[in-house]
C-alpha cells in the first residue's frame, strides 16, 4: 500500500513535476484573488490565449519563449486594463476582443507556417511531465517575484482592487500598481502555460480564489487560503493524474472543481445554520 503511494516519487521527473505544479498552483492561487475580486475572472482564460499568440510570434522570430511571451502578455494585460477603465466597454468585452485577436494571430501564423505546429501542443494542453530545469527555474523566479509584489504592495493592491477611483485620492499610484500587477499576471500565465496549458489556466486562477471566498469574509484570510488551496490542487492534481492516467492539467482542474463543490455545499450549509440562528434570536427577542 505505502509502496503504491510513494511509487511515483521514485521518478525524478515526477518530483520535478510535483514541485512545479505546487508552485504554479500557489502562484495562480494568490494572483487569482485579485483577478476574482476585480471582476475579471475571464482574464486568465483570455490572457493565456493572447500569450499563445505571443509565443507563436516569438518562436517565428527565434526569440526566447519566456521573454517573447511575457512581453506580449504584459502588453495585452495593460491594454485590457486600459480598455476596462473605459466605462462604455465592459471588462468581459475588452478581454474578449484583445485576447481573441491575439490568439487568432497565433493560429493564423501556425496555419501559414505549419512546421512548428507540434511544439505548441504543450502550450495548448500543458505538459507538466516534460518540464525542464529551465522551466522550473522560471516558475520559482516568477513565484518569488509575485509573492514579493503581493507583500510589498499589499496595501496599495488591496485599496486599488477594492475601490480604484478612491484609492488615487488616498495617494495610491493606481497606474503604477496596474502596471506592476499586469506584469506579474503576464509572467504568471507564461510560466503556468507549460504546466496547465492555455485551455486550463483560467480554472487554476479562478477556482482557488472562489473556494477561498466561499470560506471567508476576510481579505487576508482569502489570500492565504487561496494560496494554500492552489498549491494543494497543483500537488494532488498531479499525484492523481499518475494513478488515474489522465492529463495532468485536467487532473489539477478537476481536483479544484471538486473542492469548489465541497466549499459551495459547506457555504450553503453554513448560511442556512446562520439564518436559523438569526430567526431563533429574533423570535427570542420578540
Amino acid at each position: 500500500m505505502i509502496f503504491t503511494l510513494i511509487e511515483p516519487l521514485q521518478y525524478e521527473f515526477f518530483i520535478k513535476a510535483m514541485l512545479c505544479a505546487l508552485l504554479v498552483g500557489m502562484l495562480c492561487g494568490v494572483i487569482g484573488v485579485y483577478i476574482v475580486l476585480r471582476g475579471m475572472s475571464y482574464i486568465g482564460h483570455g490572457l493565456s490565449h493572447a500569450i499563445f499568440g505571443g509565443a507563436v510570434v516569438s518562436s517565428l522570430m527565434s526569440i526566447n519563449f519566456f521573454i517573447g511571451a511575457s512581453v506580449w502578455g504584459f502588453v495585452s494585460a495593460v491594454l485590457i486594463n486600459l480598455a476596462t477603465k473605459k466605462k462604455t466597454i465592459g471588462a468581459d468585452a475588452a478581454i474578449g476582443i484583445i485576447t481573441t485577436a491575439s490568439f487568432a494571430l497565433g493560429i493564423a501564423i501556425i496555419s501559414k507556417f505549419k512546421t512548428f505546429t507540434r511544439g505548441f501542443d504543450a502550450a495548448l494542453f500543458g505538459n507538466v511531465l516534460g518540464i525542464t530545469n529551465a522551466d522550473l527555474i522560471a516558475v520559482i523566479f516568477v513565484t518569488l517575484f509575485a509573492f514579493i509584489v503581493v507583500l510589498v504592495f499589499y496595501k496599495q493592491l488591496l485599496f486599488a482592487t477594492f475601490d480604484y477611483d478612491v484609492a488615487k485620492y488616498y495617494g495610491v499610484p493606481v497606474i503604477w500598481i496596474d502596471v506592476i500587477f499586469s506584469m506579474t499576471l503576464a509572467a504568471t500565465i507564461v510560466v503556468s502555460m507549460q504546466v496547465l496549458g492555455v485551455t486550463l489556466i483560467a480554472a487554476a486562477v479562478v477556482i482557488p480564489a472562489v473556494v477561498s471566498r466561499l470560506l471567508t469574509n476576510n481579505f487576508l484570510h482569502m489570500l492565504i487560503f487561496s494560496t494554500i488551496i492552489g498549491g494543494l490542487c497543483g500537488l494532488f492534481g498531479i499525484y492523481l493524474s499518475y494513478y488515474l492516467d489522465i492529463a495532468s492539467g485536467a487532473s489539477v482542474v478537476l481536483f479544484s472543481s471538486v473542492l469548489f463543490i465541497i466549499a459551495l455545499l459547506y457555504s450553503s450549509y453554513k448560511g442556512r445554520i446562520k439564518r436559523t440562528i438569526n430567526i431563533r434570536k429574533n423570535k427570542f427577542h420578540l
Partner: peptide, 20 residues
C-alpha cells in the same frame, strides 16, 4: 458605489486610510 460583497472587515477598511 461600494462593492459590499468584497471580503473586507471593518478593521481592514479603516486601516486602508493609513496608506496616505
Amino acid at each position: 458605489t461600494i462593492d459590499w460583497n468584497f471580503p473586507i472587515t471593518v478593521r481592514q477598511l479603516i486601516e486602508m486610510g493609513i496608506i496616505r
